[in-house]
């Protein structure tokens, strides 16, 4: 009898609500997938260009400028790849695990995210900053004093933000 009360109250809630058409869900899903694919293609091309550049030029003229660039690009790439891997893993687990197992997975996932945020990200950031620092002497030689100061100021401001 009491059980009926709960169902009765809950069924009062079966009001009309507008839900999207399935075709609009498919369109949205395909649009998201296209955007992800474009992002991956752009990143893939960037990585290929960097590898080509490194293979052709770095062995003959490796200096602190090349090292600085390599550190900056590598630190960014590591961070992006880990971020993407982490998100893809989470999405695939969501569709394959029951709620109990997924909840346990989420606990591990958020611990892992904490490690990424508090250990890996500062390390990547430090490596990136060091790479940038190595470039400054070259900027000083190549550019005017005013533009050099502007580069330093904009680098500091953008890193702080």
């Amino acid at each position: 009898m009491d059980n009926d009360i709960l169902n009765k109250v809950w069924n009062e809630n079966k009001s009309s609500h507008t839900i999207p058409e399935p075709s609009s869900i498919i369109a949205k899903a395909n649009q998201q997938r296209r955007k992800q694919n474009i992002g991956l293609i752009v990143m893939g091309i960037t990585v290929l260009i960097l590898i080509a550049y490194a293979t052709l030029y770095l062995p003959s003229s490796f200096n602190s400028f090349s090292l600085g660039l390599t550190l900056m690009v590598a630190s960014m790439l590591v961070r992006i790849i880990i971020e993407m891997y982490s998100k893809l893993q989470k999405a695939s687990k969501l569709a394959s695990m029951d709620a109990k197992t997924y909840k346990l997975y989420l606990k591990r996932y958020y611990k892992w995210r904490m490690k990424i945020n508090y250990i890996l990200t500062p390390v990547c950031f430090a490596v990136y900053c060091y790479g940038l620092y190595l470039l400054f002497p070259y900027f000083k030689n190549e550019f005017s004093n005013g533009f050099y100061l502007y580069l330093i100021a904009s680098a500091v401001i953008s890193l702080m933000l």
């Binding site: 609500h17 839900i19 999207p20 399935p22 869900i25 498919i26 949205k28 899903a29 998201q32 997938r33 999405a91 695939s92 969501l94 569709a95 394959s96």
Partner: peptide, 18 residues
């Protein structure tokens, strides 16, 4: 609820092969 509902079926579509 609408956001989650939409998100659910986007995932159903994306993961249909799995």
């Amino acid at each position: 609820a609408k956001d989650w509902h939409q998100e659910t079926f986007i995932k159903v579509w994306n993961h249909r092969k799995s």
